[in-house]
C-alpha cells in the first residue's frame, strides 16, 4: 500500500459504491473542486490529491493512520437527503471494511451539492 496510489484506488472504489447508492444521481467533480477551495483546505493537497476530480477525496490524516474521506453528491429528486447521506456513509464504511482490510479509522463527510 503505497502512499501515492492507495488513496486513488480507494477513492475509485468509494466512488463506485457511492454511485450505486439509491438516491444518488451523480458525483459532482467540478463542484468538489470549487468547494474544496472555499472550505480552505491547504494548498499542496490540491489536484495532485488523486481523488479530487471524481467528487470523492481520500486523504491520509496527518500524523496518524486515519483517513479523511469527503464525498460530494448530487441527489435525485424524491429521496430524503439525510437518508441518502446515511446510505452513502454506510456504503463508504463497507468499502473501507472490505478493502482496507485493516483497522482504519476514517472520518467520512458527505455533502449534498445539488438535487436534480
Amino acid at each position: 500500500m503505497t502512499e501515492q496510489q492507495t488513496p486513488r484506488a480507494l477513492a475509485d472504489l468509494v466512488g463506485a459504491a457511492v454511485l450505486a447508492t439509491r438516491g444518488v444521481a451523480f458525483l459532482r467533480p467540478g463542484l468538489a473542486e470549487l468547494l474544496r477551495s472555499s472550505v480552505g483546505l491547504g494548498a499542496g493537497r490540491g489536484t495532485s490529491g488523486a481523488a479530487g476530480a471524481s467528487g470523492v477525496r481520500v486523504q491520509r490524516r496527518k500524523g496518524s493512520a486515519g483517513l479523511d474521506i469527503e464525498v460530494y453528491v448530487v441527489l435525485s429528486r424524491g429521496h430524503r437527503a439525510l437518508d441518502v447521506t446515511r446510505a452513502v456513509r454506510a456504503a463508504v464504511v463497507d468499502v473501507l471494511a472490505g478493502e482496507a482490510g485493516e483497522k482504519v479509522s476514517a472520518q467520512v463527510r458527505v455533502t449534498v451539492t445539488g438535487v436534480v
Binding site: L31, L35, A81, T85, R86, V110, T111, V112, T113, G114
Partner: peptide
C-alpha cells in the same frame, strides 16, 4: 454555468454528531 455554480453556504443535515451537509442553493 454549471462549472461556475454558486452553492452558497454549507449547512448541516441530521444530528449534531453526523458529518452530513447540504449546500444552501440545494
Amino acid at each position: 454555468v454549471r462549472l461556475e455554480l454558486r452553492p452558497g453556504r454549507t449547512l448541516a443535515l441530521g444530528e449534531p454528531d453526523e458529518d452530513a451537509w447540504i449546500v444552501e442553493a440545494a
